[in-house]
């Protein structure tokens, strides 16, 4: 029975060959000895390290004094970095949860058992890993620099050598950083008076972002014709009420900046990576694809960790490591 199940799961279509005795070693002494040496080296290394390097202890905890910047532990700093660029629920909860779920799913998506037990078991694995790492680093660093508006500084500096009065053109206002779509970009289109939808004054112009920042959600109970309006269901318990979007109005510019664009980037860039690798002909199996995605996720995590813990100064501004203020 067990042998049959193994035969089915094997790609070679045959049962795993019985181990050759001469290929085997005794655990004692061959493995136990290696483990013992590793344990001794490990213990000595950490005792020496702990004699030289003292663990930090700052001033006593005080919620009235907020250190600037206050940072999460380094292994969570990457998610703190995400919070700077997107909605907190997306960066702090949904993205990490999906990262864990993707990790869980890897062996259930990549079901072939070929190429196990070998470093980079497919012909293109190393190339794919290196390309994915480069792709992820370039885009992560690029997007962070973009969101910090560094391209504006660079272009302005270069342009001002030619023309001293040059300024970032108004037509490119939404491209100063992500948030500029919401805050730095203003336009209006004339709208005929007959297009009056809701109550309130109609100034004849549809303005971005003001006129888009309070768009009622459908059936939110407070907008539309009379039959679509009802009182807040106060008789229901609070947790039930919190499940329904009563009086919820969407801030469209904020939605685009905080949720839509980040989600599009977090889904689109991995998809682009797989697309490029397939066009290059490097990705042949699901294993290749999972190497690309795993490497990309890992590198994004590392780069976000490095930037969040080494390059974020007061007010979470992007600064060089030696400009990060010392906190005590």
């Amino acid at each position: 029975m067990a042998a049959g199940a193994r035969t089915v799961s094997s790609t070679q279509g045959g049962a795993r060959p019985r181990r050759e005795r001469e290929q085997e070693l005794l655990v004692w002494p061959d493995l136990v000895f290696v483990e013992f040496i590793a344990a001794v080296v490990f213990t000595l290394a950490f005792i020496i390290l702990s004699t030289i390097l003292d663990a930090p202890l700052l001033n006593e905890a005080n919620l009235d004094i907020t250190p600037n910047p206050s940072k999460a532990a380094w292994y969570l700093a990457s998610f703190q970095e995400l919070l700077l660029h997107m909605h907190p629920a997306l960066g702090g909860v949904i993205a990490p949860t999906f990262a864990i779920i993707i990790l869980f799913m890897i062996p259930y998506i990549d079901r072939s058992n070929a190429g196990q037990g070998v470093w980079f078991g497919t012909p293109n694995a190393v190339k794919i890993a290196l390309f994915s790492a480069a792709f992820a680093s370039v885009f992560t660093v690029g997007l962070i620099l973009y969101d910090a508006g560094r391209h504006v500084n660079v272009v302005t500096n270069v342009a001002q050598r030619v023309d001293k009065d040059w300024e970032w053109p108004g037509a490119l206002a939404p491209f100063q950083n992500m948030r500029a779509i919401q805050t730095g970009w203003e336009w209006g289109v004339p709208v005929p008076k007959s297009a009056q939808l809701g109550p309130g004054e109609h100034d004849g112009v549809l303005n971005w972002p003001e006129d888009f920042s309070h768009v009622p959600m459908p059936f939110n109970g407070t907008s539309g014709p009379d039959w679509m309006r009802w009182d807040k269901p106060d008789s229901l318990p609070g947790w039930v009420q919190s499940l329904y979007w009563y009086d919820l109005n969407m801030n469209t510019p904020a939605f685009i900046v905080e949720l839509f664009i980040p989600m599009a980037i977090m889904i689109g860039l991995p998809a682009l990576l797989i697309f490029i690798l397939r066009r290059l002909g490097w990705v042949e199996t699901i294993r290749d694809g999972s190497i690309a995605i795993f490497t990309g996720m890992l590198v994004v995590y590392f780069i976000l960790t490095i930037i969040a813990s080494g390059f974020r100064g007061a007010g979470q501004d992007l600064v060089l490591p030696w400009d990060v203020p010392h906190i005590d």
Binding site: P56, L57, L58, N59, E60, A61, N62, L63, I65, T66, P67, S70, K71, A72, A73, L76, F79, Q80, L83, H87, P88, A89, G92, V93, I94, W239, S242, L243, I327, D328
Partner: peptide, 27 residues
């Protein structure tokens, strides 16, 4: 991380807990 009860620990945990506070619906 919280146990030494210094400025590093309490603020790191505050930052982390604020992330937990942004869980949709039941933050």
């Amino acid at each position: 991380y919280l146990l030494p009860w210094d400025q590093l620990s309490i603020w790191a945990v505050t930052v982390g807990m604020n992330m937990a506070g942004s869980v949709p619906l039941m933050g």
